[in-house]
């Protein structure tokens, strides 16, 4: 039992929790503050993961690899935004989710085995990152948060990025720029009538939130291999659940949302698994636990949106759904 709890609490600080938090902060910029229905955050993460991995494997350093990832992310924003940002918002939803799937199909096609690794994906690209690890080899942390020097390094970097991103977004949102963005969320015609180029601002928001998603993609793959299967629609839906859990129009919401999400998921997983092992739960097998937790995520998402659309921490007054 203690092990289950430790596993769950260990999720609080994993790089994956940080990556999801980063992606959700980007989505908060899109949806929570600008009202853009981006259902392709997985595409931005995919672009980050692949551009970073391909660049470093091609022998480029970390900084050029990150810059290339950002450049690819901006290109993606233009590709998604130009056809859709002038149209009604549900077009963006359909196009972004479609684009995410297109990208995933393309990187996993066997024809591109030499470039993207095809269905196998890419690995061995993070050596440069771990080679600049300032922490000496050893064991760090305690109890649920025990890790080796690599784990420590990647956690420090991942969570620093989360904090920087949160500060950056909160600064942007409180600026006159953020005022225009929030105005667009409320009513874009009104903002247009005040002489603001709404299309351009939406594009800027798409780019900024997308770059945060791209950064999330890099953080996401640092401790593992790049696998095309990880960037499916399920990833996007998880990020949405996290965002809505914490509150879409908040900056801290996505971070806390990610932590709660992963702790709860690990906890239910552990409890179900223990229940099956000990014979308390008989109607499912170990094999089916993964499916159950997806069902829980789905139910959670529905209940949240219906009964608490502002999220756990969101202010009821800052209800952000319109239309």
């Amino acid at each position: 039992m203690e092990q289950i709890l430790a596993n769950a609490l260990g999720e609080l600080l994993t790089p994956m929790t940080a990556a999801y938090a980063l992606a959700a902060i980007g989505l908060a910029m899109h949806f929570g503050f600008t009202g853009l229905l981006n259902f392709g955050q997985a595409a931005y993460m995919l672009v980050g993961a692949y551009a970073f991995a391909m660049s470093t494997l091609a022998g480029l350093g970390l900084v050029p690899a990150i810059l290339i990832s950002f450049a690819a992310s901006i290109v993606l924003s233009f590709v998604l935004g130009i056809p859709t940002l002038r149209l009604r918002s549900d077009y963006l939803a359909i196009v972004t989710i479609a684009a995410a799937e297109i990208l995933r199909f393309i990187v996993s096609t066997t024809g591109l085995n030499d470039v993207t690794g095809g269905p196998q994906g890419l690995s061995g690209f993070a050596r440069d990152f771990y080679s600049i690890n300032p922490f000496p080899a050893g064991e760090y942390g305690f109890w649920a948060w025990t890790m080796d020097e690599k784990g420590l390094w990647v956690r420090v970097v991942a969570w620093s990025l989360v904090i920087i991103a949160a500060l950056f977004v909160s600064k942007m949102i409180r600026s006159p720029w953020g005022r225009v963005i929030k105005g667009i969320r409320e009513d874009e015609d009104a903002v247009r009538s005040l002489g603001k180029n709404v299309y351009s601002y939406k594009m800027q928001s798409l780019i900024i939130g997308g770059m945060l998603g791209t950064l999330a993609g890099i953080v996401f793959v640092l401790p593992r291999a790049v696998q095309p299967g990880n960037f499916g629609t399920g990833l996007t839906f998880f990020i949405w659940t996290i965002l809505l859990l914490g509150g879409a129009a908040t900056v801290l919401g996505p971070i806390i949302g990610s932590m709660i999400f992963w702790v709860l998921l690990s906890l239910t997983d552990g409890l179900l698994s223990a229940g099956v092992d000990s014979g308390v739960i008989t109607f499912i097998t170990q094999n089916q636990i993964g499916g159950i937790r997806f069902m829980l995520v789905g139910i959670g998402l529905m209940l949240l949106v219906i009964f608490r659309p502002q999220g756990i921490f969101g202010n009821k007054k800052e209800l952000y759904f319109n239309g």
């Binding site: 005022r179 969320r185 409320e186 009538s193 005040l194």
Partner: peptide
Amino acid sequence: PSYKVARLGMVRTFQLTKALSLL
């Protein structure tokens, strides 16, 4: 485009008011 019209000094209001409620 409408935003440029506004910048040129011709500004409008709407029949159904468009106060930005959450600002």
